[in-house]
Amino acid sequence: MNKPSIVAVAGAAGVGKTTWITQQLAGAVDSVGYFCPKAEATPIDSFHLLTEFPQLTVFTDQQVDKLHYSDATIYIEIGFHLTLATAESLLTGLDAQKVAIVPPNLLNLNTEWHQWADVVETGQLVSSTESKDLWRSDLSYQVIDPASIDTLWAELTQGAYGLVQRAKGIFDLSDGRSFYFDFVAGHKNRYRELNLPLWLDGRPSRFSGLEIIGVSLDRQSIGDTLAECCLSDEAIAYYQSKIKENMLEPV
């Protein structure tokens, strides 16, 4: 029997767990897998990683058993929404190497991350505030107006709807492209176009969604404003037909 090589990665919101995993995936020679427990409704990270590493095997909560039988090196990302105790119970029976990503200012301390981990890696600075709210929205089938999401993103990350420490989203835009937005308090916003085909046939059935971590989030306003950024069926049809028209024209 092949013993699965499993790496469990934990750390505070925004410290750089997915970034660290991305680096490992980029350097991987053998087959690789990814599992983010209890994130099914908004699988932003796994979707994002898949667009970069199409050969990646992504496991869902229903496929936990399969982790045992895989030949791949599997990275398990312990999201901020799971306590280390929960993580421990998830890892029972899996011979996992535990990696904690710790911000530079905590590197030489002995935090709960240090106690939990086999290996400690340096991440980026994050603000450490108690009592974090999590706001998630699955936006699949929605098409977003780019100028509107720019405005909302700027407001969101500058505190118009509560103190946001971490926000990441995948949006299907009216020009058919899919974009990844990434914000960590104190750091520059990052935007990246996902390596996906233009979606030009009706509402996109591929995943898109938004996840926000912060303090005293104005959930109602975030939801309402996000809804105002979404295109109607007519508008989607209009943009898609325009794009197709332009694609037909010789350059």
Binding site: A147, T151, C229
Partner: peptide, 8 residues
């Protein structure tokens, strides 16, 4: 310039 600007 945007749907959001329009509704506001």
């Amino acid at each position: 310039p945007s749907l959001l600007a329009e509704s506001r």
